[in-house]
Amino acid sequence: MSPPVITVNNVSFRYNEVPVLEKVSLAVEQGEFLGIVGPNGGGKSTLLKLILGLLKPLQGTIAVLGSAPQEACRQLGYVPQFIHFDRHFPISVCDTVLQGRLGKTRTFLGFNRYDRKRAAQAMEETEILDLAQRPIAALSGGQLQRVLIARALACDPQILLLDEPTANIDPKVEEDVFDLLKRLNERITMIVVSHDIGFISNYINRVACLNRTLVCHTTSAITGGILEQLYGSPIRMVHHETRLNGSGKAHGNHQ
């Protein structure tokens, strides 16, 4: 068996005096579809940023594809939460996706023909090719999410990391996005951060429950007791076979 693509070993991190992660260890295998769940402020996004090399661990080590995160980050595709940039920025879908080619293309002048071809393939795969010339300000939440996934795919990533990919879109579109991710998982290792446990457990092989400390489960092993431990209050379970339709958004199961 090949070595894990990501190894997180005993990592701790804090912002100023507030501890966010404590002695977290995690190994991600090639081809896996890992879900990281946990309450807001539980350290999910922080763990992603550590893996991406945007933050440095205070203690412990992280190896990505056999090297340090800062060196490996060009092999990763990152889909950030989309609240973090200006949706009225004057940029087209195509130009946004092309940004995924940065770091693989020439330094001077514009993108070359190969970059444009790869961007077109990424848009084709995410079914947004017909939106290529639209400004991003004119997109729906689900469309914008696909644009961000296409941008990450244009990087030719070996691993795709997504931070709350369904936070701002409605449940029907959410299902489409996860179906897309499931398809991509046939060739790309996936890590998805979500607070939507009930929903993602239909798609993932393994779930890491993160609330400062991290516990891993295979999806079939999630029980009410584990969730209660994670969220610190009794939780109504949505069973894995339950497909959510328009009415019951999975946030409900945290109450």
Binding site: R74, P80, Q99, L102, R151, C155
Partner: peptide, 10 residues
Amino acid sequence: FDPEFARLRG
């Protein structure tokens, strides 16, 4: 547009 992403692309 997105400095964090730009940084990840080197």
